Simulated assay, not measured.
Amino acid sequence: MTTETPRRHRKAVIWISVVVAVVVLAVVGVVVATNVYSSSENAKASAAPSVAATREASTIETDDLSGTWTVGGDSEAGYRVHEVLNGSDVTVTGRTDSVSGTATVDGTSITAATITVQVADITTDSDQRDAYFRDSAMDAAAFPEATFELTEPIADAVPSGSDTTTVSAPGKLTLHGVTKDVTAELQVGLSGDGVDVSGSVPVTFSDYGVQAPNLGFVKVDDAGSVEFLVHATPVG
């Protein structure tokens, strides 16, 4: 009897220690997982792209805008999603200036256009979120580019002077190796040495084989949007 009680006491202490260790590890796991995905519950969302917010006085000759235009500097693209992170509603925007492309203009109509975005370069305010987006969600190593290709001409798309036009652009969006028919809503205006085009395309991520994160502490909506503001200049 004199040895049994200490043994039981030691067993109880051991079991309590094991339970405490498991609880601590579980808490640490949640904290680490949260930090892996996002470093902030108040992620800063960029404003929606807008020609009106960026345009400058036009310096190009507008008598004949026909020809090939190239997309480059001062362009950006990315995504906008809603997520619930640790019980808080958060709007997240990712952006990159790794954007390229070409467009063909005939008079005031855009008859062809292709825009390409380097997916791995898209960033938010969190390196951890970006790594998850790049490696787990988008598999950028296998699918490094997202593209939008115009499939029908857009009549009267390019305005004159300081006017801005609002048009719908039917096209094909390729994301995560999957191509879908989409319609982009665009604003177009002459700006500086070229033309600015801003717009967005609504997307359902599962349609492109992309699994929106649902990790317990964070849940991302399956629906979001691809956003862009591109600056194109005439070639030659």
Rank of each mutant, 00 (worst) to 15 (best):
residue 71 V to H: 02
residue 63 D to R: 12
residue 81 V to K: 00
residue 80 R to G: 04
residue 84 V to R: 03
residue 91 T to E: 12
residue 81 V to R: 00
residue 73 G to N: 11
residue 70 T to I: 09
residue 75 S to D: 05
residue 63 D to G: 13
residue 81 V to I: 14
residue 76 E to L: 13
residue 87 G to I: 05
residue 72 G to S: 09
residue 92 V to F: 03
residue 71 V to N: 01
residue 66 S to N: 07
residue 82 H to Y: 11
residue 81 V to M: 02
residue 96 T to E: 09
residue 65 L to V: 05
residue 60 I to Y: 03
residue 64 D to M: 06
residue 80 R to P: 01
residue 72 G to Y: 04
residue 56 E to W: 12
residue 75 S to L: 05
residue 87 G to V: 08
residue 95 R to H: 14
residue 56 E to L: 15
residue 58 S to R: 04
residue 92 V to D: 00
residue 56 E to V: 15
residue 64 D to L: 03
residue 84 V to Q: 04
residue 94 G to T: 10
residue 75 S to H: 06
residue 91 T to Y: 11
residue 66 S to T: 12
residue 63 D to N: 13
residue 59 T to M: 07
residue 93 T to G: 08
residue 88 S to V: 15
residue 87 G to T: 12
residue 58 S to Q: 06
residue 74 D to E: 15
residue 78 G to Y: 01
residue 59 T to N: 09
residue 86 N to V: 14
residue 88 S to I: 13
residue 64 D to Q: 05
residue 68 T to K: 09
residue 73 G to T: 15
residue 61 E to L: 14
residue 74 D to H: 14
residue 73 G to M: 10
residue 56 E to T: 15
residue 77 A to L: 05
residue 64 D to H: 03
residue 88 S to Y: 10
residue 91 T to P: 05
residue 77 A to S: 10
residue 72 G to L: 03
residue 69 W to V: 01
residue 75 S to C: 08
residue 93 T to P: 04
residue 58 S to G: 11
residue 60 I to Q: 02
residue 87 G to N: 08
residue 75 S to Q: 06
residue 87 G to R: 03
residue 94 G to P: 01
residue 95 R to I: 14
residue 82 H to W: 08
residue 85 L to M: 07
residue 91 T to M: 11
residue 67 G to T: 12
residue 77 A to V: 07
residue 90 V to H: 04
residue 92 V to L: 11
residue 60 I to L: 13
residue 78 G to I: 07
residue 82 H to E: 11
residue 79 Y to F: 14
residue 85 L to E: 00
residue 59 T to G: 08
residue 55 R to C: 09
residue 88 S to K: 13
residue 78 G to V: 10
residue 65 L to G: 00
residue 95 R to E: 12
residue 69 W to Y: 07
residue 80 R to E: 07
residue 55 R to H: 11
residue 83 E to C: 04
residue 55 R to S: 14
residue 88 S to E: 14
residue 87 G to K: 05
residue 64 D to G: 04
residue 80 R to I: 11
residue 84 V to H: 03
